Amino acid sequence: MRNIITGVLAVALVGGMSVFSLNAIAADEPEGASESAAVAGDAPSADGECCPKDDQTPPLELIEKTPIGGLHNPYNDDTAAMEEVGHKKYLSFSCNGCHGGGGGGGMCPPLTNDAFVYGADDDTLFRLIALGSDELQKQGYTRVRKEVVTGPMPPFGNIIKTSDDLWKVIAWMRVKNPSSVEDVDKPAQTPGQ
């Protein structure tokens, strides 16, 4: 019985590898190229700038690859175009449970006022949402503004699967809080630098 199971597993493994090889050849890419591109994403670029639209890199992986201050929302040039899709993603990740359906607050800070607790720049917001406030503080960030907060911001870096999805949520936040746009590239703090 063990030999039969081993044989079936071997055939399945070899068959699976052949299908992967044929798909790579059909796509005119070297074997493994599409898999590594899908996993690694396009960020950051050789010059250290980040981030392209449609980046499929998981948020936590992008944070690991990008130095503090290097995360920039590719949708800043047209946040209004992201309003509907960003709001849908915001709701799908249950951000509304704490920040309200329209971002007006609840048991946690409203996204519609200027009291971004750690700073309103792209890099800090991306890290805050992905890592959560406890991990952000462990990395040296401190509160720069005061706001009524019931509890810590939980980490969403494993819930939000792609950096692109997170950037779209942040773009929606910019629509709800247009005054925050002036701070996208002005880090309130740069721990460790």
Rank of each mutant, 00 (worst) to 15 (best):
W172A: 00
A120F: 06
M173K: 07
P110V: 05
W167M: 04
S179A: 13
R145Q: 15
G105Q: 03
M153V: 11
G119N: 00
E135K: 01
I159H: 07
F20M: 13
V19T: 09
T142C: 00
R145S: 10
G32I: 08
T66Y: 01
L22H: 12
L136A: 10
L166Q: 00
K168R: 12
A26P: 00
L131P: 03
P74M: 02
D164E: 04
S92M: 09
A188I: 07
P187D: 09
V117D: 00
D134P: 05
G70H: 07
G70C: 05
A171I: 05
V181L: 14
E182W: 02
A24Q: 09
D114A: 13
K186S: 08
K146S: 14
L9F: 05
A46Q: 13
A188T: 05
G102N: 11
T142G: 09
G119V: 03
G102W: 07
L166V: 01
F156M: 09
E147A: 15
G192T: 07
R2H: 12
A115Y: 11
D134E: 15
F156D: 01
D54H: 10
M173V: 15
C51M: 04
V117W: 00
Y75V: 04
M82D: 06
V181K: 13
E29M: 11
V19K: 04
A80V: 10
P30Q: 14
M1A: 15
T150W: 13
A40Y: 08
M153W: 03
E135F: 01
V144A: 06
L13F: 15
V8A: 15
T190D: 03
G192K: 07
Q193M: 10
I4T: 15
N23F: 12
G86P: 05
D42M: 11
A81T: 07
R145N: 15
L62N: 02
V169Q: 02
D78I: 04
K176T: 09
C51D: 02
L71S: 02
E31V: 15
Q193R: 13
S163V: 01
A12F: 07
H72R: 12
S34L: 15
P52R: 09
W172M: 03
V184A: 15
N76Y: 05
L111M: 10
P58H: 03
L22I: 12
E49V: 11
A120N: 06
P52D: 06
K53R: 14
C98D: 01
D183E: 13
G132F: 03
P178G: 02
A80C: 00
N113M: 03
T112G: 04
T124M: 04
K89H: 10
C108Y: 14
D122M: 03
D28I: 08
Q139M: 10
T150K: 15
D134I: 10
Y141I: 05
V8D: 07
G86W: 00
A24T: 08
L125E: 02
